[in-house]
Write a protein that binds this DNA or RNA. Structure first.
Length: 301
DNA sequence: CAATTAATAT
DNA sequence: TATATTAATT
């Protein structure tokens, strides 16, 4: 049992993927014209974000060894038709994004964002913005949030206050959902109801009124990566050589996520040191042929 | 319009 | 199965 509950917040940043964990791959998966269509540019961006809440979080990113790397220089000169022919045809419209795979890392990010926002501000749009993960849509977050809330409810009912590890308890847990959710500690604040008035000090200043604007570009970035196919299984790549993830004998195709963030700075302009997030596309599983978009290396905590 | 939720679809 | 999508409601 761990008791790190007392100050999980001092660790949360530590647990963020370090730069060396991420793979700075840059690969052009998209055809030039397609890229232009989506306004996809080279990842020269720095790392935006994740505004830190009030507590002075230091940022000891252990990024010492940066070893891995690079970019495969090998460009596959477009293996040509990436698709059954459609890639460079129609606009981003009607393109279907692959299903998002919620890896433990990605979920961690999600939980951290929710935790730092507080129950009151943890709504899909805000969470999505805080996560700053390219390719993530509000709907992705909303869908996941719905499930996550159900998970929390179940836990509140069964956990007698110990809340130690926050692991899944036997009984009425759905093995399916619990497995993912259990991989990341549940911050105490998320448990139990939210206070309407005096909440504990969870001093995150709400960002100024959010404006709604159309965003299509970012979604398209991911979509573009898989450039419209409906039934083909384009050769994508999975990077990581981590253990735990069985090496797929499949072809892979790394794609660097773009982190453009159209949103303005939020209330607290603290230092930012969030590493870039990588988008990883993974080929369909043998179970069908579904295309899946994975943002993040699949490793577990 | 955004959020929430239940139901449904893939 | 896990996630997406839809519809009804706030």
């Amino acid at each position: 049992m761990r008791e790190e509950h007392s100050n999980w917040f001092s660790r949360w940043e530590d647990e963020l993927p370090s730069p060396d964990e991420l793979m700075p791959l840059s690969q052009t998966l998209i055809t030039p014209d397609l890229a232009l269509a989506f306004d996809i540019q080279n990842p020269s961006n720095s790392s935006p974000p994740l505004p830190c809440p009030s507590p002075p979080l230091s940022n000891p990113l252990p990024g010492s060894g940066n070893g891995i790397v690079p970019p495969n220089s090998a460009d596959f000169g477009d293996s040509a038709d990436l698709g059954s022919g459609a890639a460079s045809d129609e606009p981003a419209r009607t393109l279907k994004r692959p299903r998002l795979v919620w890896t433990p890392q990605l979920h961690k990010r999600f939980v951290d964002a929710v935790a730092h926002l507080g129950i009151k501000n943890a709504v899909p749009k805000t969470i999505m913005q805080l996560m700053s993960v390219d390719g993530l849509t509000r709907e992705n977050v909303a869908s996941h949030l719905q499930k996550y809330r159900l998970y929390l409810k179940r836990m509140q009912g069964l956990s007698g206050g110990g809340g130690g590890g926050g692991a899944a308890l036997v009984g009425s847990s759905d093995p399916a959902t619990d497995h993912l959710f259990a991989s990341s500690p549940v911050p105490p604040h998320l448990l139990h109801s939210a206070r309407t008035s005096s909440d504990h000090f969870l001093p995150y200043v709400p960002m100024a009124t959010l404006q709604q604007h159309h965003h299509h570009q970012q979604q398209m970035a991911a979509a573009a990566a898989v450039a419209g196919h409906t039934q083909l299984q384009p050769p994508y790549h999975r990077q990581v050589g981590h253990f735990g993830s069985p090496p797929n004998g499949q072809f892979e195709h790394p794609f660097l996520a773009r982190q453009s963030q159209p949103i303005h700075r939020m209330g607290t302009p603290v230092h930012n040191s969030v590493p870039n997030y990588i988008e990883d596309l993974e080929s369909a599983n043998a179970t069908g042929g579904r295309k899946v978009l994975t943002l993040f290396p699949t490793g577990d905590d």
